[in-house]
Structure formats: C-alpha cells, structure tokens
C-alpha cells in the first residue's frame, strides 16, 4: 500500500549542505596534498589527466547533453590553445605560462564566436559534420604554416619548464572552476532553459527559451574551457603537431567519457573521465588491444546502460548529484502526507 510510485519530481537531489561540504573538503584536501607534496608524482600524473579530461568531458556534455549540439570538432580549440601556448611561450614572445594559456583561451573564444556565425545555421548531423570539417580545415592551415614548423610541429620551450606539481594544481583549478560554473549555470534561469532544450528543443523554443543565445553561450564557454584544458595538456606533453592538436581522437575521448559517465548529467563526465584515464593507463600493457577493449566497453555501455553509469544509477536509485533541480524534499513531504 505504501509502495511509492516515483515521478521525476520525486527524485532526490543530493545537493544538501553536507554534500557540498564534502566536495569542498575533497577539493581543499587535494590542493593541500598537491601544495604540500603529499601526493606522489605518479598519482599527480593520473590526477592531471583526470582533471583535464573531466573539464573536456564536462564541456562536451554541456554542448551535446544539454544544448543538443553534438560537436565532433572540439579539438579545434585544443589545437588552437596548444599552438598558442607553444608560440607565446617561445623565446620569440616569451610570455609566461599563465598568460599564454589565457591567450590561447581568448583566441579560442574569438574563433568560436566567428565559427558560431557559420555553424549555428546548421543543426543535427549537419552541425556535427561542419564542426569536424572546421577542425580539419584548421589542421590543414597549421600543416601549411611555416612559422609553426608545418608538419614537423613545435616543441614547447617554456623556461623554466613548469613542474608536474604546478601543472597538477593548474589543471585542478581549471577543473574546479569548470565544474562550479557548469553547476552554477545549470541552476540559473539559463540552466532551466538548457535542461528544457535537452528534453525537447522545439517545446523549449515554444515556451520562450531563446535557443540561439543559449547555444552561443554554451558554445563559447565550452570553447574557453576546452582550450584551457588543451593548453595544459600540451604543456604536459611538451610537443605539438597539427595532427596531434587537431586530431579527432580528442573528440573520441570526450564522447567516450560523456557516454560512459552519462550524458546530460553533471556527475557523469567525472566518473567517465576517471574510468577513461585508468583504462587508458592499464591498457597500455596490452599493445594493439587497447582500442578494441575501449570500443567494446563503449558498445556494452550503450547497449546495457544507455544513460551511462551515472544516468542509470540516478534512474534506478532516484537521486541526483550536482543536479540542476532546486527541489529535493517532495518525496518526504509526499510520504508524510500519506
């Protein structure tokens, strides 16, 4: 008799103060760990990748999972940022790392505003293909550009070269800011609009959501943070080539992370990125098999957990972490009423 029938409004939203406090404690703990040198270099190497992939995955998720813009060309901003960092920090310009990263992100924002003029005329598959083509076009441009070494690529010559600890702190900061921004954004009026767009774009438009401005905002934010993450990635690698900067493999990673974790959820890409980084590292011991195993996992997840890990857990257990919903007590009230 007391068997409850859950409706979406009965979903428990775990954003209560203890939850937020836990997140803050975790972030502060990691910061202290990094600053005080309590975390080993080996762990930091993993953490750098996890933080950067969370940022990228979260941004792709914001684009595809919320705004319905399935971009296959986010590597455009990764490549632009990587090259900006390589050029700006070269002895010729001698910018400090932080300035170079912001410059790369700034250039990406400008390019994304320009690209939006062209890309936003297209929708669905056409949009996806156009983003991919745009990234390829930039790749060709850098292949032909003598100043950046053409296909021979550029070595990043920052002096003194940032330590892994500095890179780790930087990537964690970007990840925290990106997560806070996405979380905050989704809880504003814009977030409501985006959630409405995620569920049904036509209905959202009909109730007054300004589709163009929402899309533009999300696209520019995604370009900015993807560029920051990409810039740090290349600082960590030390080299950039046109095909490593503008390669489709970046988007494949982002899609994998978002799909495995759960598109349309804020917590999904976090889980996705952790799984991706660990798989990537552990599969290095099986040369030739790593991509087959990654592909098989993706297919299995799509078949059996179509909402991703977090999406499925949320559905089954009726809770949400980092939810865009601002109510969570309906269930209790409903139970009490009964």
């Amino acid at each position: 008799m007391l068997k409850r029938k859950f409706t979406p409004s009965h979903v428990k939203v775990l954003d209560s103060p203890p939850m937020l406090i836990l997140c803050i404690v975790l972030a502060v703990g990691l910061y202290i760990g990094c600053f005080a040198g309590l975390i080993s270099n080996k762990a930091m190497r993993y953490l750098v990748q996890i933080f950067l992939y969370i940022t990228m995955g979260e941004m792709w998720n914001l684009l595809s999972g919320y705004a319905g813009m399935t971009s296959l060309g986010q590597q455009l901003y990764i490549g632009l940022a990587g090259y900006s960092v390589a050029m700006a920090t070269s002895p010729l310009f001698g910018l400090p790392l932080f300035g170079a990263l912001l410059l790369g992100a700034g250039i990406s924002v400008v390019v994304s505003l320009f690209m939006s003029l062209i890309l936003f005329r297209l929708e669905g598959m056409y949009f996806s293909i156009a983003t991919l083509v745009a990234a390829e076009a930039f790749c060709m441009l850098f292949f032909a550009w003598k100043f950046v070494g053409q296909g021979a690529g550029m070595t990043i010559r920052i002096n003194p070269y940032p330590t892994l600890q500095e890179i780790c702190i930087l990537s964690m900061t970007i990840c925290v800011v990106a997560l806070a921004l996405v979380y905050g954004l989704l809880r504003t009026r814009v977030g409501l609009g985006l959630t409405a767009m995620r569920d049904d774009i036509t209905s959202a438009a009909s109730v007054g959501v300004n589709i163009f401005s929402h899309k533009l905002l999300v696209y520019v934010i995604a370009a900015f943070f993807t560029a920051l993450a990409g810039g740090i990635f290349f600082v960590n690698k030390g080299m950039i080539y046109p095909d490593s900067g503008f390669g489709i493999s970046w988007t494949i990673s982002m899609v994998f992370i978002a799909i495995i974790g759960g598109t349309g959820t804020v917590s999904g890409p976090i889980i996705g990125a952790i799984i991706y980084v660990f798989l990537n590292e552990k599969l290095a011991d099986y040369p030739g098999w790593s991509n087959i195993i990654l592909g098989t996992i993706t297919i299995l997840v799509i078949l059996f957990l179509p909402n991703g890990i977090m999406g499925t857990l949320q559905k089954k257990l009726h809770f949400e972490i980092f939810s865009s919903k601002r109510f969570s007590f309906k269930l209790k009230k409903a139970a009490k009423e009964k």
Partner: peptide
C-alpha cells in the same frame, strides 16, 4: 578512488 590512486600506484 581518486585519493587511493596515488597510494595504489605507490
């Protein structure tokens, strides 16, 4: 898992 990755690796 995040915190332990360091320890595990170590």
């Amino acid at each position: 898992s995040l915190a332990a990755c360091g320890a595990a690796q170590d």
